[in-house]
């Protein structure tokens, strides 16, 4: 078990070296939320706490889901996968390593909106809750990214398209641009289905001290999403890995 964790860490290190230190990935991770943010926030009279919380939630979401979907198809294409499959590691270990890299990346990039917020005078009322939320959300979204890549394809473009088609709509139903409490009841129901809603809510709690859901509900929901995504990802990848060879 400890051995497998160490080996997952080795995979994470490899992922960071190969996939994360590339310019486009980092830029895409920062720019997508920044553009969405600017497009929807400019000219609206909203509180800076509210804005930064939304930006932070979106940033974790986009960065954590940016690379996990492409690792498996890329390694299918570059023919590295059979070696991993022959190594003394389980599929869970491989996926956990991929997630770990993605989580570290998500956490590192999330410092950008936090520092930006602090520069704009936002105070962090609940730093521990914020840290916990960021870590949980980063794991949760990384696992979600793994689900996108579980079709046994070597085409990164297919996977990217699929993930974009799901990611962008999620942003709009997650109470980022409009507070959940101001949504109509169908909007609130929809928002409750998105993990992004809960991390954004947690961020608002951390900055403003107020939120729509109770804090424990936010944390619990993120945990449940994480476990569900992880289990689905493992099951799907266990099935698809042999088909990629």
């Amino acid at each position: 078990m400890i051995d497998q964790m160490r080996r997952a860490y080795a995979i994470a290190k490899k992922d960071v070296r190969i996939y994360y230190l590339k310019g486009p990935v980092i830029i895409f991770g920062i720019l997508s939320p920044a553009f969405l943010f600017l497009a929807f926030m400019i000219g609206r009279d909203l509180h800076v706490d509210f804005l930064i919380a939304g930006l932070l939630g979106m940033t974790i979401f986009f960065t954590s889901t940016s690379v996990t979907p492409v690792i498996a198809p890329t390694e299918t294409q570059t023919r590295n996968l059979e070696r991993l499959a022959a190594a003394p590691i389980s599929v869970t270990t491989i996926l956990f390593g991929d997630m770990l890299a993605s989580v570290l990346f998500g956490i590192a990039i999330s410092l950008v909106p936090i520092l930006l917020g602090m520069a704009l005078g936002v105070t962090i009322v609940h730093p521990f809750i914020l840290a916990l939320g960021i870590v949980l959300a980063a794991f949760c979204f990384s696992a979600m990214g793994l689900i996108f890549s579980s079709t046994p394809t070597s085409m990164t473009s297919t996977v990217m398209m699929l993930s974009t088609m799901i990611k962008f709509p999620l942003v709009f139903i997650s109470g980022i641009f409009i507070p959940v409490q101001e949504l109509p009841s169908w909007g609130r129901a929809l928002a409750s289905l998105s993990p992004l809603t809960y991390i954004t809510d947690l961020c608002r709690y951390s900055f403003q001290g107020a939120c729509h859901y109770p804090v424990m509900v936010d944390i619990g929901a993120l945990l449940v999403f994480l476990i569900v995504f992880m289990v689905i990802a493992i099951k799907l990848h266990e099935r698809s890995l042999p088909k990629r060879l």
Binding site: K14, R79, L84
Partner: peptide
């Protein structure tokens, strides 16, 4: 030890890092 038929090292990593990665995978 396995040398698969169609396999590749990680081309973006150095030879050294490829070898160390294998060592880590095998503990």
């Amino acid at each position: 030890g396995v040398v698969p038929e169609l396999s590749n090292a990680y081309t973006e990593l150095s030879a050294w890092n490829n070898l160390q990665f294998m060592a880590e995978l095998y503990g």
